[in-house]
Design a protein around this nucleic acid. Sequence first.
DNA 1: CTACTCAATGAGTATACGCTCATATACGGA
DNA 2: TCCGTATATGAGCGTATACTCATTGAGTAG
Lengths: 109, 109
Amino acid sequence: MNANKLPPEALELIAARFRVLGEPNRLRLISALEQGEKNVSELVAETELTQANVSRHLQTLTEAGMLGRRKEGLNVYYFIADKSLFDLCELVCSRLQKELAAKVASFGI
Amino acid sequence: MNANKLPPEALELIAARFRVLGEPNRLRLISALEQGEKNVSELVAETELTQANVSRHLQTLTEAGMLGRRKEGLNVYYFIADKSLFDLCELVCSRLQKELAAKVASFGI
DNA sequence: CTACTCAATGAGTATACGCTCATATACGGA
DNA sequence: TCCGTATATGAGCGTATACTCATTGAGTAG
């Protein structure tokens, strides 16, 4: 948000990126891949989502450049391609914790 | 995303936060407030959105704890309450620039 | 109190998107 | 080649949400 007059197309690009992250199940997939690459079946087992649903979310994440794909025989392995994801989530998490702490404190006394 | 088994409610909270940012016009409002607090009329003039629309987006942003409100007579002034917004956008922007640069390079040779 | 201004909100519409079922595609083994 | 397994995708449905118009609510000035 540095540039003072970001053109609409740029804003749309940025927003699109946030939108991809605005879905809990996609965050779940990202989180699951934090430990390392996994194939679709593993992700389905771990998240308990349907295979079709996992596939679609992985597609969304991959198109956004956040994940990478690697085929190995029948299996397709996905992995985190954008390490800045962790920084993003870190920022949001710490902010949420701060807000939660404030809420707790306001009840405390 | 540090914790390995973030509970679903936490993921929903994080996702909700990203979703709020996943709308170009809301980013526009945030961007407009970067210079300092502004009232609704000023934001309407600057963004060329309808007053109703601006009002709703401001509500969304305020409920998410990202903006603050201050009434002064008839006017209501909004301001950035969550400074980490800038870090978030910075991260996304720099990542997008990197991707764009890569795309340009791949056409270069 | 009346009239005016700024901001918020109820109602309605259009669109985006997450989900599922069924099917297609891709690949490996017999 | 024929079958089975892993993943992707078309079609359809239901919900969420961005937008607008009209109205209301809050505050000020006359």
